[in-house]
């Protein structure tokens, strides 16, 4: 399984790494127990500073997608998929709340906000 980073992308490199590993877990290209390369190996291969890869790994660890067992290495957590969905739900909830609050501050009613979000969700599905 390979990952690819784009140095010219506006998305920070560590987020690209995190996003692709999360996607690989969701697609079951990486399953619980699979080991990830050491930070230095991945940093060398991607021609990055090792702190950048370390940041990506830290982010994944905070989301409980991976866990580092010291010298034994870094592994995909047993419940990584569930933790990803939980984290994504938390992120989505937070972003929607922030959005709703900003619409409210502009004078929109609860009903209008609900209708707008529902229309957007239906439009996206189509």
């Amino acid at each position: 399984m390979e990952i690819e980073i784009n140095n010219n992308s506006p998305e920070p490199v560590y987020e690209q790494i995190e996003r692709q590993i999360v996607k690989a877990v969701c697609l079951q290209q990486l399953v619980p127990g699979d080991s990830l390369p050491p930070i230095r190996q991945l940093a060398n291969d991607l021609e990055l500073n090792h702190n950048t890869v370390a940041k990506a790994y830290k982010l994944l660890e905070s989301q409980r997608v991976i866990h580092t067992a010291g010298r034994k290495g870094t592994f995909i957590q047993p419940d990584a998929l569930a933790n990803i969905k939980l984290y994504q739900q938390q992120q989505a909830t937070y972003q929607l709340k922030t959005l709703a609050a900003s619409f409210q501050s502009r004078g929109m009613t609860h009903h209008e906000i609900n209708q707008l979000l529902s229309d957007c969700a239906n439009g996206y599905q189509e």
């Binding site: 390979e2 990952i3 690819e4 140095n7 990486l30 390369p37 991607l46 021609e47």
Partner: peptide, 14 residues
């Protein structure tokens, strides 16, 4: 020397 636009790497643990 700047890195190429895209760089690939394996996630295999050597």
């Amino acid at each position: 020397i700047p890195s190429k636009g895209t760089v690939k790497a394996s996630l295999g643990h050597r």
